[in-house]
Amino acid sequence: MNDAVAVTDALLRVRDLRVEFGGRAVLREVSFDLFAGETLGLVGESGSGKSTLARAVLRLLRASRGSVAWRGRDLLACDSRTLRALRRDLQIVFQDPLASLDPRMTIGETIAEPLRIFELALDEPARAGRVAGMLERVGLAAAMAGRYPHEFSGGQCQRVGIARAMILSPALLICDEPVSSLDASIQGQIVNLLRDLQADNNTAMLFISHNLAVVRHLSHRILVMYSGRLVEMAPRDALFDRPIHPYTRALLAAVPSPWAPQPQPAATAVPASLPSATGCSYRERCRYAAAICAATEPPLEEVVPGHFAACHRARELMT
């Protein structure tokens, strides 16, 4: 894969995206860019707003504020007809491979559905041919098109989900924890497949996962979320070699490995109470928390060129 992405205009430009459920903000002022052919990794723990971000970007749920510019056009402002036409280029792969397939449809029908919606000129044999080709591309036999999702294993269902997302060669693919529910021996197969398909189509990818090692494997840049906010954004190697935010450090330190000594719990286990309204939301678990952390919420700032972090003590922690 080409590691250096040519700097052009961003395909996707997310600005100050905010999502509230019942008055509670689950996503707060998230901004980032995504370029053609780039893979952006998004890590964070459950409840940090990763999936909400994916769904808000695709307008599968309503954002309360902010903008999502796709090739310069705001997805959140356009009417539903335009949005549906744009969906051709914006696809998603979900976490639960079986749940994301309609149990009443054969996998062939599922993969053909985007064609039925967007390529109306295609006749039945041509469509069947495209589906067969796609099935083989994702490593399934074309003869399997007539079978139902429950006849397949999790890894195979995820291949079907990927085939449905990729059959129209979208310009953006969002992967929401695509390998989290799969066994270790299958995860690599799916990740490699995604990479191959991305290389074929020069697809931009937003890859969401709580598995840092997988994200490290295929991302160019990485976003770290905590409690609905971006707390760190950096090129891959910078993030893994020189993490700045205390939360990112805790995250990296906590990954268990059979060959390394037992990971040391890096942060305080449990916040004593709910995150308070003011200040940094991580401060209750942070071993570096100072007085200023309780007073104001740190903005996401460029600490080193290309490396952003939202921490008051970022510059001290660097040294």
């Binding site: 599968l60 036409a85 696809q91 749940a99 994301s100 397939l101 309609d102 009443r104 985007p114």
Partner: peptide
Amino acid sequence: EFIEAAVASGAGTARIICRHVIP
């Protein structure tokens, strides 16, 4: 999720009701 997947694929309301909900 499969309903969400259909929305994300660009399927309209009528299509989702007829092809995904009713079956």
